[in-house]
């Protein structure tokens, strides 16, 4: 693979007079786990929504696999290989776990009149469920899963579409300490064959798993680099880490 899979150049997003994201650039590569951290209101979620196509940027461009997708709607970006999870669990609760994942694969693989066939067991969906460890619960209704399992299903749905890029928006939100560790390990392995962008509050997880870290404050990039550099940065210490990690 040559060059980044997903690249953002000078992304800016304003809401009325407020600048939520200001001149943010980043590049994601396969095999790399890239974390974005920052205090609440730093614009992390807005950044994910800009990259996924939920909202259009006010300025800047986004390239997916070398193609300019700045104007492409979210579902087109998803088809072009961009998978995402949501900060607040966002699944079809009335459907089974398998059906949730299967719809993820269907979106990526079945078009047009092909939709008029009966659904088959999709290998990609089953693989995705196996990878997050939900195979045993595949037949259960998503609405009956525990919070932790639902967070895993979020990831499985994204994986089922066989994406090249994964945007994980606080996948550990609301998890207990003992649940965090295996999922952090899972996220680490996801980076083996995907370009992963991870938004996360848990500093231990970020600094122990990420290959690169972007620190955002008030919509801007404060610093970007490998964990050691970021940890050592005085600006980060004062602006952010000093407060939250202590």
């Amino acid at each position: 693979m040559t060059g980044p899979v997903l690249r953002a150049d000078g992304l800016t997003r304003r809401f009325g007079g407020i600048v939520a994201v200001s001149d943010v650039s980043l590049a994601l590569e396969t095999g790399t786990l890239h974390a974005v951290i920052g205090p609440n209101g730093a614009g992390k979620s807005t950044l994910v929504n800009l990259l996924s196509g939920d909202i259009p940027p006010s300025e800047g461009r986004i390239f997916l696999g070398g193609q300019d997708v700045t104007a492409a709607p979210d579902w087109r970006r998803a088809r072009a290989g961009l998978g995402r999870t949501f900060q607040r669990t966002n699944v079809m609760r009335g459907m089974t776990v398998r059906e949730n994942a299967r719809l993820g694969t269907q979106a990526a693989t079945v078009r047009g009149w092909g939709l008029l066939r009966q659904p088959v067991i999709e290998e990609a969906a089953e693989t995705a469920l196996a990878r997050v460890g939900l195979s045993a619960q595949a037949g259960e209704l998503a609405g009956t899963l525990s919070h932790g399992a639902l967070r895993l299903l979020e990831i499985a749905i994204a994986l089922a579409g066989q994406p090249k890029v994964l945007l994980l928006d606080e996948p550990l939100a609301g998890m207990g300490v003992e649940e965090t560790r295996p999922i952090a390990a899972l996220i680490r392995t996801l980076a083996d064959d995907h370009a992963v962008l991870l938004i996360e509050h848990d500093m231990d997880v970020v600094f122990s798993t990420a290959d690169r870290i972007t620190v955002m404050v008030e919509g801007r990039v404060l610093i970007e680099g490998p964990p050691e550099t970021v940890r050592a940065s005085e600006a980060v210490q004062t602006a952010y880490l000093g407060r939250e990690v202590g």
Binding site: S52, D54, P73, D74, W75, R76, A78, R79, R84, F86, N90, V91, M92, L103, G104, Q106, A107, A108, I157, G161
Partner: peptide, 9 residues
């Protein structure tokens, strides 16, 4: 919204 994010038209 989830269906769109999955890539369904």
């Amino acid at each position: 919204s989830r269906m769109r994010a999955m890539g369904h038209d």
